[in-house]
């Protein structure tokens, strides 16, 4: 085996090994966090201890409807240490809700409701925003999440 083939083998194997490690980490994450990944809305896959919050995206605001029937716009009120499931739909065009501090991201697609589960751990005020371009005032489609 000449040195060229040897070198090529070495760098191919090194790249493969690094990628394999990252891929295994990724598969583990997906396997352990199935509820935390955006998926089509289905009440039977909502975790048992989770409170459902109905989210509606429209041009250009987010509205949240809680289990007791109250609604808030551009403010999301949750309690730390409790599990929530956001069931997200859209009234008009495609939106995408992102809460960067919690790594919660879910598309709001008209006619295709999605859900995602998360558990806030820290108290405080965090930002959320729409990250799928949705028209003139897309940048104003943002708000604050109050964790008490």
């Amino acid at each position: 085996m000449n040195s060229k083939v040897k070198n090529e083998l070495i760098y191919t194997i090194v790249v493969l090994a690094i990628l394999l490690v990252v891929a295994v980490i990724n598969v583990n994450y997906i396997d352990g966090h199935k509820a935390n990944i955006a998926q089509p809305e289905n009440n039977s896959t909502v975790p048992a201890n989770s409170t459902i919050i109905k989210v509606t995206g429209y041009q250009w605001a987010w509205s949240f409807t809680y289990t007791n029937g109250t609604t808030s716009t551009d403010y999301l009120y949750v309690t730390a240490g409790h599990t929530y499931t956001l069931q997200v739909q859209s009234k008009d065009v495609i939106h995408d809700l992102l809460i960067p501090n919690l790594g919660v991201q879910v598309y709001a697609v008209p006619g295709h409701p999605n859900q995602v589960t998360f558990e806030p751990t820290k108290q405080g005020t965090f930002i959320f925003e729409c990250v799928e371009y949705c028209g003139q005032d897309h940048y104003l489609m943002r708000g604050y999440m109050e964790v008490s």
Partner: peptide
């Protein structure tokens, strides 16, 4: 490669 991780993608997609 970082973005291809679902855990990073949830935070960074669309940003």
């Amino acid at each position: 490669v970082m973005l291809a991780n679902q855990s990073v993608n949830e935070v960074a997609h669309g940003t």
